[in-house]
């Protein structure tokens, strides 16, 4: 059992991360950075969830997952048990999962099967968390996606590396019938986070560097 003070520290850290996720989903495609010092204070049982380089993923998972929700991890089966233990969430098949995790470089085709919610309850659509190498602001004429829609003033460019290049085509398909769809977060190796909610239209995928 954690002491009261530790418990309170965790409480403040997850609050911090949540606000960042809230900013990210309120402003799709914009980059927000997790403070590394915040993660340093984390009493982290494993250094990375899927291996080295994703030490920022765990704080995100701790912020969102608990015993009330289910998750699915694409590919990497070895980590399922560990994740269930750390977060308290239970593993499920992809069709039923509240959260779908796509590790670094993993194929993302499986997200096509993720829950998109019902018309009466579209909020039941899954949240997808992608671990990627790097997210950064897109620059014109470089490989990037253009995002449009509510929450975006005009247009937002976003560049992501270390992700299955098919991902965006999948997301366009999944989110083609608003309000049904999935909401995605992209967490990179240095703690940068960006989001693409289902309300966002991915307008253009410029030849993606793999």
């Amino acid at each position: 059992m954690k002491s009261g003070e530790d418990h309170q520290t965790v409480s403040l850290l997850t609050q911090n991360i949540f606000r960042l996720l809230l900013d990210a989903i309120s402003r799709p495609g914009r980059i927000y950075e997790i403070n590394p010092a915040a993660v340093g204070e984390w009493d982290c049982p494993v250094p990375g969830v899927f291996g080295n380089g994703d030490s920022f993923l765990l704080p995100v998972l701790m912020t969102l997952l608990d015993k009330e929700v289910s998750f699915y991890v694409t590919g990497n089966k070895g980590t399922v048990q560990e994740m269930a233990e750390i977060t308290g969430a239970h593993a499920s098949v992809v069709r039923d999962a509240d959260f779908v995790l796509v590790p670094h470089e993993a194929k993302s085709k499986v997200i096509l099967e993720a829950k998109r919610g019902a018309l009466q309850y579209p909020d039941e659509g899954a949240t997808i968390i992608f671990c990627v190498e790097r997210v950064c602001e897109g620059i014109e004429n470089r490989p990037c996606i253009r995002l449009k829609g509510p929450s975006i003033a005009d247009m937002q460019r976003l560049s992501i590396t270390g992700i299955d290049p098919e991902t965006f085509a999948h997301l366009m398909l999944i989110n083609g019938a608003f309000p049904l769809g999935v909401d995605s977060f992209f967490v990179d190796m240095e703690g940068r986070v960006a989001a693409i909610p289902r309300s966002t239209t991915i307008e253009e995928v410029k030849e993606w560097a793999t």
């Binding site: 409480s11 997850t14 809230l22 912020t63 997952l65 909020d123 909610p197």
Partner: peptide, 20 residues
């Protein structure tokens, strides 16, 4: 913390589906 996590998850969904 459990209550906060649940409310936070719902806030994120609410933002993702404006007006719902």
């Amino acid at each position: 913390e459990g209550a906060k996590r649940e409310i936070r998850r719902k806030i994120l969904k609410a933002v993702a589906i404006p007006g719902y």
